[in-house]
């Protein structure tokens, strides 16, 4: 599904070069739920940005869904983000003046779906996250947990192959965090690959597999080639 080999990413200023990722390699299989942990500044967000094709990288190869996406144009990358990837952010990143319906509509518009198709998908997605009755509300009228559920609806509405979640529960209290987590697990069970960056070990453990990043590299290469099937197994292993 996702295969990164020796990816490096350098941030340059006039004076210094900082390696955010150095020879970073990771493979994620179809249907997996992978959590990515690591201390602040370890490069986990950089990894997610590169995996989500939000950012360029300097070296290495990146295969996504069987396609080499290392050297794609900005346009092609936009298209892949739009069609194959769903994003969930810590700060929700809903557009404040659009109501729920319109927020979920955003990626579908860029996808070029016809109006009925969009309507069906928006309804389905919002109902799936339990907000089917509040489609005309503005994000500011919702609680944090509800907002994140809208973001999840927005991420899944386009039926992506993989969902990239960056601290999806970071701004939520524990009850809401649990609800969001359960939602993600349901989505994963329905077949969507999920990659989730988090600093919460509790959550990390609930994934099939945990990848720990340190100083721009995966800290324990042993984990690299160990696909684990099923959540129970993952929990047992820990």
């Amino acid at each position: 599904m996702l295969n990164m080999q020796n990816i490096s990413k350098v941030y340059r200023t006039d004076l210094v070069q900082t390696y955010a990722l150095r020879d970073f390699s990771l493979e994620v299989h179809e249907g997996e739920f992978v959590s990515v942990t690591g201390p602040s500044g370890s490069g986990k967000t950089t990894f997610l940005n590169i995996a989500g094709m939000l950012e360029d990288f300097d070296g290495g190869t990146y295969m996504l869904d069987g396609e080499n996406v290392s050297k794609l144009s900005d346009n092609a990358r936009s298209k892949i983000r739009n069609q194959k990837i769903g994003f969930i952010f810590q700060g929700f990143n809903l557009i404040p003046d659009l109501n729920l319906w319109d927020n979920v509509d955003v990626p579908l518009r860029y996808r070029g779906f016809k109006s009925e198709e969009r309507g069906r998908r928006i309804k389905e997605a919002l109902e799936m996250v339990g907000l089917g009755s509040r489609m005309k509300h503005l994000p500011s009228q919702l609680s944090g947990g509800q907002q994140q559920r809208v973001a999840i609806a927005r991420a899944i509405a386009g039926s992506p192959r993989v969902i990239m979640a960056d601290e999806p529960t970071g701004n939520l209290d524990s009850l809401m965090a649990r609800q969001v987590m359960e939602l993600l697990e349901n989505i994963n069970e329905a077949g969507t690959t999920i990659i989730m960056v988090t600093h919460d070990p509790e959550l990390a453990r609930r994934a099939h597999r945990n990848v720990h990043v340190m100083d721009g590299q995966v800290s324990d290469p042993a984990i690299l080639q160990q696909p684990v099937r099923g959540r129970q197994a993952a929990v047992a292993e820990n």
Binding site: N75, L94, P107
Partner: peptide, 15 residues
């Protein structure tokens, strides 16, 4: 901020 979100969700520069 909003543009950044739109870009993440797949809007191209041209769009």
């Amino acid at each position: 901020g909003e543009i950044s979100v739109r870009r993440a969700l797949g809007a191209s520069r041209l769009q």
